[in-house]
Nucleic acid binder design. Structure first.
Lengths: 342, 342
DNA sequence: CTGTTAGCGCGTTCAA
DNA sequence: TTGAACGCGCTAACAG
């Protein structure tokens, strides 16, 4: 039982089967015909020796890792986790592995991940911007391998792009609130440096017919409650609805409203964006826009894999995926109107 | 600007700097002294050429990928996502990359991941069992590289183990319910094939002084509601509290109870286990046991990295991490008792 | 249908 | 303080 420590190589198999390494290679790859006889003997040898091809040697030889990298700001976030799942499914269907980097919204960490991915020679990269993106290295990398910007666009970068239709999402929210009869809404915006945020806001303005009081926040839960504190529903600029440009801030707003003693949706309606897992289970369940996270990931990876197959070093396709409004219980007609209609 | 397509290798750098490849290698690794002069010239060449060492070649040469694998049943689950984050932090501190596999509770997928990880020669593996584990390949792998079973133990496998103190968690739940005055509880158990489940149940029985009606489910949300349907609070075996052995099932139970018209916690108390993200935001916020997911991951990876450093091919350490009870609003004294005390 | 040879890019002897 | 040479394991020419 004292096994030799040395890894069993293709040569060991060849020797055991009485053939050349080339033949072993070919029964494995199917790249050229092999006689039934030989095939059997080789497979037997592989099985008994427990041979596993060395991926390192294969990549060195072929110049490809058969791996796609995916870099997200927060793996712990349901949205990104689903996106990753999409990437992984597409990749593994094509026989590729997925290596994931979690930047945790930290620029240094992101840079490190980008560097190790480059060094390890990933064949493609799905990049989801969180904090201000590491433009330079992305730029550099994008000349060597195809990159897809997922969920969040970055100008001045030649890559493929796969995003949800943020603008339509915003407009869905605006028309929903307008249809309910709201005539003034507090819009809690995210960082305007993010394209998604600007798009959502534009979309909202496209369809919301009342006055929109826009306050800028940070896409984080705390920003939502802070916005409510600084702009309470009955302040200088009264409103009956809150449109948070993502669910996290919507949850913050919900908490802020509760602290101030307002009831949702009776006194104030609240909508969010993203449809994170919590949205369905909080109290009250949040009306929001659902983004197809899994599809974003899958589409991005599929596109990348196609680019690779075609030998393209850089792609520049553009996919905009559809979004849908999910009406739950955080929205209702404003009080005045409700009174009338009853 | 028409760059040569060929990847720049250590030889290119050496030529440019007028030294030998060996020297370049050593300024990079620091494995032997290099004159200030040479060092400068080499670094300059590296910078101008944009040289990036080939990881494939390095691994082939050194026999190490400097990579740890982590295999989880569901990356989308907050608990596992946090665990992964822990692994990644520990790994990347030590200069290792992390490659994550998502089995999605599918045995075939799990097997495929295990195989590619083996093939890619990961230096260590953090394994979190979901479905019935692929014992054979794990067994095999554990003879080549150190493995840590995280969160969930598997008998008859020589590996390291890092788990939360499931038993203590169960006992915390039992004593909490008992202290509140409950004398009969419905225990919604998970698959008894999982050690965590058995431990939690034992712990509960250790401290819960009343009668425990145990019904077996599947650790999934649907199982929780099904259990309530088949065993309503006012059926043959009445109870005033339900102890779900994980949060998902607790959420199912909550829904089931609501459907039947019971109010929580006034009429029935509910507790869960895991403290997933949703637990804090559902209505009512769930009393549950918090597991240190991040620490489980970090501890596992750290242990593995130590094993590697010591040249151990297999470890067998054992870490049991502490858990805490998080009391929220899904538990209260039972009605009768409440009546008395008011 | 099968074998021989060469080289992917690197680190590491051994020798100077 | 530095180089030359070998081989990690594999596959794609190029024979036969």
């Amino acid at each position: 039982m004292t096994q030799s420590q040395r890894r069993v190589s293709i040569i060991d198999v060849a020797t055991a089967a009485g053939v050349s390494p080339t033949t072993v290679s070919h029964v494995l790859s199917g790249n050229r015909p092999v006689s039934e006889q030989t095939d059997r003997r080789v497979r037997a040898a592989i099985a008994t020796l427990g041979y596993v091809p060395s991926h390192a040697a294969q990549s060195l030889r072929s110049g490809s890792m058969r791996t796609v990298g995916v870099l997200v700001p927060d793996i712990t976030n349901y949205f990104f986790a689903q996106l990753i799942t999409g990437v992984e499914d597409a990749a593994s269907e094509a026989g590729f592995s997925t290596i994931v980097g979690n930047s945790r919204f930290d620029t240094a960490r992101e840079l490190r991940h980008l560097n190790t991915m480059a060094q390890r020679g990933v064949d493609a990269l799905v990049y989801v911007a969180g904090a201000p993106p590491s433009r330079r290295i992305l730029q550099e990398l994008s000349r060597r391998i195809p990159i897809a910007l997922a969920d969040e666009e970055i100008e001045s970068l030649v890559t493929s792009v796969v995003v949800a239709d943020h603008r339509k999402g915003g407009s869905l929210l605006g028309s929903h609130l307008a249809a309910l009869g709201h005539t003034a809404a507090l819009v809690i915006s995210g960082p305007p440096s993010l394209a998604s945020c600007r798009e959502r806001l534009d979309g909202f303005k496209d369809t919301f017919t009342g006055t929109a009081i826009v306050v800028e926040a940070d896409y984080l839960e705390g920003g939502g409650s802070a916005a409510i504190e600084s702009h309470p529903p009955d302040g200088n600029q009264p409103y009956t609805a809150v449109c948070a440009l993502n669910d996290l801030m919507a949850m913050g707003a919900l908490a802020g409203l509760r602290d101030l003693g307002y009831s949702v949706p009776e006194e104030v309606s609240v909508v969010g964006f993203d449809d994170i897992a919590a949205a369905a289970v909080i109290d009250p369940p949040l009306t929001t826009v659902h983004q197809p996270a899994y599809e974003v990931g899958k589409t991005a990876a599929t596109q990348l894999l196609n680019d690779i197959k075609r030998g393209q070093r850089r792609g520049s396709s553009r996919h905009v995926l559809d979004v849908t409004l999910v009406v739950r219980h955080s929205t209702a007609p404003p009080r005045s109107r409700r009174g009338r209609s009853l």
